[in-house]
C-alpha cells in the first residue's frame, strides 16, 4: 500500500467513511434478503473493476458437481479504502463467502463478507451487527 492510499484509508476511517459503504444500485431487485448463505470454493477469475468487483468461484455442490458461482462486492474504490486490494483475493485461492443469493439465479451472490485462506475476514458491506453467531 503506497503512502497516498495509506493516507486515504486513514482519513476515511477517521471520518467513518469506510464503515458506511453504500451501494449505488439496487441489490434488492436481484438478491433475496431472506436467503443469506455461505459457500466455499476455488476462485477461478478475479474481476476487480467498477461498478462492482466480481469473483467467479468454483463450488462443489451436494451431489459432488462443480458449479461456477458469480459473486460480487462493492466498488473497487471503496474496497481499496478498506485495504481490500486487487491482489487480496487471487485465482486459485480457496475462500469462504457469506452473502445473499439471487431471487431467481441461485448461483449468484451479493457478498457480505469473505474469509481468506489465512483466516482473515473482509467485509463488503456495512454490517451493524454480526448475525452469524
Amino acid at each position: 500500500m503506497n503512502a497516498k492510499i495509506a493516507a486515504a484509508v486513514l482519513f476515511l476511517s477517521a471520518t467513518g467513511f469506510a464503515n458506511h459503504v453504500i451501494a449505488h444500485h439496487s441489490y434488492a431487485a436481484e438478491f433475496d434478503r431472506n436467503a443469506p448463505m455461505t459457500i466455499e470454493g476455488i476462485v477461478t477469475e478475479v474481476w476487480f473493476r467498477s461498478p462492482h468487483v466480481r469473483y467467479y468461484v468454483n463450488v462443489t455442490d451436494g451431489d459432488g458437481k462443480q458449479v461456477l458461482w458469480d459473486t460480487r462486492g462493492l466498488t473497487p474504490t471503496k474496497l481499496v479504502r478498506q485495504g481490500w486490494m486487487k491482489d487480496t483475493i487471487k485465482v486459485g485461492d480457496r475462500i469462504k463467502m457469506y452473502g445473499h443469493i439471487g431471487h431467481t439465479n441461485k448461483t449468484i451472490m451479493s457478498i457480505i463478507d469473505v474469509t481468506l485462506p489465512d483466516g482473515r475476514v473482509l467485509t463488503s458491506r456495512s454490517v451493524a451487527y454480526d448475525i452469524k453467531n
Binding site: 493516507a7 486515504a8 482519513f11 471520518t15 473493476r49 458469480d70 473497487p76 474504490t77
Partner: peptide, 26 residues
C-alpha cells in the same frame, strides 16, 4: 460532507462486461 483536503479521489473506470456476461449466462 466534511472538508478533507488530503483525500485522494480515485479513478472510477467502469466496465459493463460482467453485467452483459451475466445476462448471456442467464
Amino acid at each position: 460532507w466534511t472538508r478533507q483536503p488530503d483525500a485522494v479521489i480515485f479513478p472510477f473506470e467502469c466496465d459493463p462486461d460482467a453485467f452483459f456476461r451475466q445476462l448471456y449466462n442467464e
